[in-house]
Amino acid sequence: MGKTILTVDDSVSIRQMISFTLKGAGYEVTEAVDGQDALDKAQRETFNLVLTDINMPRMDGLKLLEKLRGLTPYKTIPILMLTTESCSEMKARGRDAGATGWLVKPFNPKSLLEIISQVTK
């Protein structure tokens, strides 16, 4: 059974592209449309990795990150931020809240898979 990944993005096309890339590499992918949807899904199932956008309605990626790190199963699970945001202030907020890494969009499928493989070893 492949590793499970929760991917969070309010853009349908980005979710499609991430799923396409990850499923092609053998991962099991669950999609969430925003932070709240992701939190609900993460409470029902523990994923091996969370890949989340930042700017989303209802609950943004940084809030989701804080909430997930507050849940026992997610204290050490890799959480990657995949966002258009690249300012150092925002990155520092992510790092302080417990993000494992920061990927600036657009992503390259090969690099994304390499990073995921690296942090889920």
Binding site: N55, T84, E85, S86, C87, M90, K91, G94, R95, A99, T100, G101, W102, L103, V104, K105, P106, F107, N108, S111, I115, Q118, V119
Partner: peptide
Amino acid sequence: NKPVVQHEVQKGEIELF
């Protein structure tokens, strides 16, 4: 803050903490 600063559609940077 402007959410997008990219001027080209090229692969973005990656940083592990």
